[in-house]
Design a binder for these strands. Structure first.
Length: 437
RNA sequence: GCGGGUGUAGCUCAGGUGGUUAGAGCGCCAGAUUGUGAUUCUGGAAGUCGGGGGUUCAAGUCCCCUCACUCGCCCCA
């Protein structure tokens, strides 16, 4: 590898300059405070799982990164194959199952961590990215109220970082599966996967795929598309589904749930939450309410938040059933899009409040003590450790956006001075009492 | 995994149909200016032209292969 190749960016592994990382950190702080305001606790499970855990819920074609030791003996089978997690939901379920005795249920947690996927990167899609998950998990049935609360938390969070407006589409897997069952479609899973492409390939494309892959006839496809076309921002969508004349027990139950959730969300501005019967979500483990949020202004940009309700994520790990519901915010994806749209204002290049200059002739003890005094009073202070001309020192402070430059006296007992970088005013000051005006 | 686009200095890019020693702007370093940020001026460092092979007297330029980045498909935050 040439030095130049070593310096090249790696596709899908974004890196931020300090002035933007500072913004990202602010976002994380805001998200945390929203999550905590609803009583969610933070956990940080390991980022690595046995491959079998990640593949537990079907989807064996997941693009996952495995990890191994460089020095490992290839013939040594003793070490299980580990992999970086590609989302936080299944690993969280494993964490809950492992610590069940020490957790209090319903367990409410948030996680802000990196995830890794080996997919081909493109606009808004990365191989290493930050996800912010909020989930409720219980050993008993979870009240439907959470189905309405979770997307509200997410909207609040996205609003807090100034990333809106968002449109969240809501559906219920039971409606889809129940409706398909009522139509006599046996392979609901594949039907859902195909229907999910409606906004991308259109009704015709979906119809073709349904015929080719599932062998559905024209009348059935009509019915399937009829359901997928229904959307609205209130509970009335339920009536329109019923009007299609398909019935099944599961469908009834799903419609009741959807009705409840939409009624709860009616109080929000129009367009914020929309029932959309074409939304399916690719992941296999969802069993009830599902969410999918996009930027209202950029409908072609990929989903920025997604989630839903699942009956049981731990499978055969423990004998108990662990139902849950949650949502994930794609922070890296949102950040990248807003960055591209010029909506992210760079922060400062350093957190420093005060640069203590290297005053020629000043006793070093005095300079260090000056910095220490200011630091102990709560200021973020760095010292310029090199004896260079003040031009260079001031230029450094200016470029880094450090608002104050402190000049210790060049002799013991002399007068300290502090300079305002912006106004260039310089006045005498005492490090023990000085306050920025 | 499949398809399109792009690779020349730290960054953004010029380099008609092959032709001497590969350029510009910005940035960087030093000085003018022996201690207070601008501007200006002067000087300087920095390139295996992504890599390999081929054609040719001659390749940054043409051909083949390859790698990387990028956009889309699949899939997903």
């Amino acid at each position: 590898m040439t030095p130049k190749e070593k310096l090249r960016p790696i596709s899908g592994f974004p890196e931020l300059l300090p002035e933007y990382r500072m913004v990202e950190l602010e976002w994380i702080d805001k998200l945390r405070s929203v999550f905590e305001s609803y009583g969610f606790a933070s956990i940080e499970p390991r980022t690595v799982e046995p491959v079998e855990v990640l593949l537990k819920q079907g989807d064996t074609d997941k693009e996952i990164y495995t990890i191994g030791r460089l020095m490992a003996d290839p013939s040594d089978k003793a070490e299980p194959t580990y992999a970086l997690h590609y989302d936080m939901t299944v690993p969280m379920a494993r964490y809950v199952a492992a610590n069940m005795n020490d957790l209090t249920f319903p367990f409410k947690r948030y996680q802000i961590q990196k995830a890794w996927r080996g997919e081909r990167p493109q606009d808004g899609r990365f191989r290493e990215f930050l996800q912010c998950d909020v989930d409720v998990v219980d050993t008993r049935e979870i009240p439907l109220h959470f189905d309405a609360e979770i997307p509200v938390i997410m909207h609040e969070a996205v609003e807090a970082i100034g990333a809106g407006p968002l449109t969240t589409k809501i559906n219920n897997r039971k409606v889809l599966e129940g409706y398909y069952a009522g139509l006599g479609i046996t392979d609901a899973g594949n039907a859902i996967r195909i229907i999910d492409k409606l906004d991308k390939i259109g009704a015709k494309g979906v119809g073709t795929m349904l015929t080719e892959e599932l062998g559905l006839d024209g009348a059935t496809i009509e019915k399937v598309l009829g359901l997928a076309e229904i959307q609205g921002n209130d509970a009335s969508v339920v009536q329109r589904v019923k009007a299609l004349g398909v019935t099944s027990e599961l469908l009834e139950q799903g419609l009741e749930e959807l009705h409840f959730v939409m009624r709860e969300l009616e109080r929000f501005p129009e367009g914020a939450f929309v029932a959309d019967l074409s939304i399916a979500r690719g992941l296999a483990y969802y069993t009830g309410t599902v969410y999918e949020a996009k930027f209202a202004d950029f409908p072609d940009f990929p989903t920025v938040c997604g989630g839903g309700r699942y009956d049981n994520l731990v499978g055969d790990l423990v004998s108990k059933r662990l139902p849950g519901i949650g949502i994930s915010i794609g922070l890296t994806r949102i950040f990248a899009k807003l960055m591209r749209e010029g909506r992210i204002e760079a922060g400062r290049k350093a957190p420093t409040d005060i640069l203590v200059a290297h005053t020629r002739g000043a006793p070093y003890d005095l300079v260090r003590e000056t910095a220490h005094t200011l630091r102990s009073r709560g200021f973020k202070v760095e010292q310029y450790h090199e004896d260079r001309k003040l031009n260079a020192q001031l230029k450094y402070a200016g470029e880094k956006g450090i608002p104050w430059v402190w000049f210790p006296p060049s002799e013991e007992g002399g007068e300290h001075q502090v300079k305002n970088s912006a106004s260039r005013d310089q006045v005498a000051a005492d490090p023990a009492t000085w306050m920025p005006e």
